[in-house]
Design a protein around this nucleic acid. Structure first.
Lengths: 364, 364
DNA sequence: TTGTATGCGTTATCAA
DNA sequence: TTGATAACGCATACAA
């Protein structure tokens, strides 16, 4: 006698089933499950037991529809495979999860159309809050579809920003890149470097801002005028063109837009017979984990990416709670001195102990 | 005369508004917007115009509730800040977006409780499909709450797997790690190494599988018995303890559980006066971008993480469409020869040109 | 402390 | 080709 244990078409358990088993009304069951204080302890226990027994899992769609709160946050970022963005995402998700929010993550790849589609998705799902990281869409355009209390811009990268436009007074979150660049230039000058170059990555807003800061800092420091190069947009690109330019008109120190570019550049420079730091110093920006694992260790500006992600989520949760978006913030960055920017003319040492400078910058 | 442009309490535009403006019923409007073939071209145009004019964005919750399809996928992974997981996530999200699915991403950190909470969230939102990457929960446990047609296990890491349990016949996606390890050992032997060590990372299932493969491969190759060490779980940990062990009983080649560990270990070995590859060869696993940027370039086994993420999403989409989960797959990995495993006793060369070996392994 | 009734915004079923 | 109407599963205002 074999019973074919074919699963019955197992209709999903709904609240009504729980209520029936518990011998209460749906309303009571609903309240009991969310710890409404005006439900008797005994009733609550009965309902909970019934729910557990039936394996009841509430339907978020139905709840959202009725409650007009989704407990969903949307996160738009450039590229999940990028270390910096990964950290932002990790921090964001972590806080969101603690606060009981689920997170939709979508990628924009610096493409306005993709960003539009992502926003549309977030809006369709009526996300309670949305974080736009490194997005190229203008805040004013975004706010045409989204209330300001629901959006946080993280490291916004829309073109107007490069032209001096101010980021929004509330709901913007940035790292203090100019301060970081200044600290870096000061460090380089201090180490004896005079002929510096900046290598950008595609002339995005953040690139232009860092570049401008570098131009200003070198000028103020009395060093030679900054030479400016550009390696193009792509992340782990091959900056051999720039490497050649640098080999031809050799600076003694190179400031790169970010760590990825710096590491790739160090690699490319070898092909032109230039060794770092013996022949030329190099510094990056971001402070990705690889930077301090690289050989030689990369001097860089550490950006608190995970903290930025966390803070963004906190702001959205607060805004959802209070109905008003917290004021914009600028987080401090810190200079991390590695082995790629040793004291000029020093005898090449096999290994310089790395050290971390104190935090610089920040408006707090 | 100043008009206070205070925004009206702007009630959300709903389908009824569109229908009214278009002069049709809600049903017609709904159909027109989703290109139902039996709607007249003229009507469709009118409705679309009305929708655009009003800035109508459908409510996903309402749609899901009624249609019993959410177009949501859930992705559970260990850590968004980890390069490998980031790539999986990127691939997954990319396919999902193309197919019109939004993705919930949650992190588990190898913690069964966190995984449970994530699953619960996915189920509450009635995700059409769920991808569990590197999860430690047993498939049988997962399937108590989730139909098998909705779940894909990626690089599952539940304890039973280490004890020889087979992964599920459908809905499992793995890389062919044993094959990769074998290719690596063959390469090492070929380069003249005999005394090899394996450094694990916390004795997870995947760690144990790689270790077992290494033990077997060394034995079959006639090399000395494999020495086994363990550096513990954490990602970018400081493996100084293992470095000391290795310095005391020096092997000539070290196979690391993954690239992160390998890079950290190379770093730590320097503190014990061991230089890579002059004093000892080191190989990693995963093929993270940093591996080929590292100095010296790391020999590793490249795992197609992004492809795995893509495939996982494809399987879930297919399963949602067809109602049945595709068969499990094992993706091939490939040996990437870097500079950390040069031919033994060769004169130390400043730079060995890197090369990529053809793909090895794979059951397809 | 609990129950009743209604509606959230959409799609599917049935008629017309 | 279109329209009326009934769910979908839950939470809340109101009543008891």
């Amino acid at each position: 006698l074999v019973t074919t244990s074919r699963r019955p078409p197992k209709r999903r358990v709904v609240l009504a089933d729980v209520a029936r088993l518990a011998g209460t009304s749906e309303a009571t069951a609903s309240r009991a499950l969310k710890d409404d204080p005006r439900i008797a302890e005994a009733t609550r226990a009965t309902v909970r037991a019934a729910a557990t027994r039936l394996g009841y899992v509430p339907n978020a769609a139905a709840r959202s529809l009725r409650a007009k709160r989704t407990h969903i946050l949307g996160l738009l970022l450039d590229d999940l495979a990028d270390p910096t963005h990964g950290e932002v995402a990790a921090g964001f998700e972590s806080v969101a999860a603690e606060e009981g929010y689920a997170v939709f993550i979508m990628t924009g790849f610096h493409d306005a159309n993709r960003e539009q589609r992502a926003l549309r998705t977030f809006v369709e799902h009526r996300a309670d809050g949305i974080c736009l990281a490194s997005c190229v869409s203008d805040p004013s355009a975004v706010h045409r579809h989204l209330a300001a209390e629901r959006v946080v811009f993280v490291q916004p990268d829309y073109p107007r920003l490069a032209d001096g436009a101010e980021p929004p007074a509330r709901g913007a979150l940035r790292s203090d890149d100019p301060h970081g660049i200044k600290a870096l230039v000061a460090h380089l000058v201090d180490q004896g470097y005079r002929r510096m170059a900046y290598v950008g990555a595609g002339a995005t807003a953040s690139d232009l801002l860092r570049r401008a800061a570098a131009v200003e800092a070198t000028r103020e420091s009395g060093a030679d005028p900054l030479r400016v190069h550009d390696a193009g947009r792509s992340g782990w690109c091959d900056p051999s063109v720039v490497a050649r330019e640098l080999a031809d008109d050799r600076p003694d120190a190179v400031i790169c837009y970010d760590d990825k570019l710096a590491l790739a550049l160090i690699d490319a420079l070898r092909d032109f017979g230039l060794s770092v730091p013996a022949d030329v110093a190099v510094a990056g920006f971001d402070g990705i984990p690889l930077a301090r694992r690289a050989q030689p260790r990369l001097t860089t500006i550490a950006v608190p990416s995970a903290e930025i992600g966390r803070r963004a989520a906190e702001m959205l949760v607060a805004a959802a709670r209070d109905g008003s978006m917290p004021a914009s913030e600028t987080l401090p960055v810190s200079l991390v001195v590695g082995e790629t920017t040793p004291r000029r003319r020093a005898i090449p040492i096999r290994r310089v102990a790395p050290s971390v400078a104190g935090a610089v910058g920040g408006h707090g």
